[in-house]
Amino acid sequence: MDAVFSAPWRPGKHPANTMRLLSAITFLMLFSTAFGAGAAPLPAPHQVDIPLSGGTLHAQLYKPDGNGPFPVVIALHGCGGLAGHSEPVLSRYRDWAEQLLKVGNAVLLPDSYGSRDLGPQCRVKERERRVLARRQRVDDIMASRQWLVQQPWAAHDRISLLGWSNGASALLWAVRPQSSSRSVEPDFRSAVAFYPDCRVSAGLGWSARIPTLLLIGAKDDVSSPPACRQMIDGARGRSALTRIVVYPGAYHDFDRANLPPQAIAGTPDAALPEGGHLGTDPEARADSQKLVAEWLAR
């Protein structure tokens, strides 16, 4: 799989870099084992309630057995929401959460829409109730971190962010230097954004205060690969480590399992964007799994 890289991360010869590389290799070996056939299904997550200004943020938590402390990934759903009709976590997010859990991470999935008694936000009009990525969803991220640093089982210095689409857009706002919350320390460890909408951030001189990886398909016509590249390129020299990977031939939702490539136009599903294409790209999906494992193990 050929990918287009920007601001690549390469381990150096310093002993600390070597140790991080060995840690990443070990993590990848464990991660590969977790993907193996015949793995026993994991138990369902349990709901936790997180204090939020003006209400309560409901979240689903996957946590390894034991007392920890465990590294934690805050996973941020896309515009279709977190839950399905009969399941608290849609399979696309459960797939990632269970894989991360198997290699020792706790995974917290805040429900930004259900907590506000709202459904999917993909096709919400200007005058309807909306949850904004740059406001309410950033509030959810910060509230989740505040809650996690109060949990004795959480490794407070290894809390990372992982987001998809609208959740990834919220992540981009949350990692900007201007969004830092000094009342909660330490900061997030790292962040991974799957196909965010970068168009606004690209025009605002975006930069990140923590290492941030962005993954997107070259054929993504829901988000904008050129805007994401412009955003990442523009952050060079005034940002924490940033990297973009653009997968040739891949559409939006390329990491979602068993989704044949398809056009969205004409579908009535409110949990889908109004236009563009979606679909699994097996090679991009496999490569992104490896890159996420490496990034979180840094």
Rank of each mutant, 00 (worst) to 15 (best):
V72Y: 02
D233H: 07
A240N: 07
S115D: 05
F35W: 13
Q99C: 05
A16D: 15
A143D: 06
G78I: 06
L118E: 07
V107L: 06
R92L: 14
L30N: 11
R135N: 13
L259E: 07
F31Y: 12
W164Q: 08
H85V: 08
V73T: 08
A39L: 11
I264Y: 00
P51Y: 11
H85I: 11
R209C: 08
C79E: 05
S207T: 15
G36H: 10
P261R: 00
L272H: 02
W147M: 03
N258Y: 01
V138C: 06
P268H: 07
G12M: 07
L52Q: 08
M142D: 11
D140V: 01
P71G: 02
R129K: 14
A271K: 00
A59L: 11
L109K: 04
S223G: 15
H252M: 06
F27M: 14
S53T: 13
V200W: 08
P248L: 10
R92P: 03
K125T: 11
L259S: 06
G84L: 04
V184M: 10
E185N: 09
S207G: 09
D197K: 03
R189T: 08
D187F: 05
V192A: 12
K219Y: 13
P43Q: 06
K102M: 12
C228V: 12
D49K: 14
S207H: 11
E185T: 15
L108T: 03
R20I: 14
G78T: 03
E98K: 09
P225H: 11
G203E: 14
A227Y: 10
A193H: 10
Y93F: 12
A168N: 08
G80Y: 02
E185Y: 10
R238L: 04
V292T: 13
D139F: 06
N67Q: 13
L100M: 13
S183P: 00
I141C: 06
R229T: 12
S181N: 15
A218I: 03
D140N: 04
N258D: 13
A270L: 10
V124N: 04
W147A: 05
S224M: 11
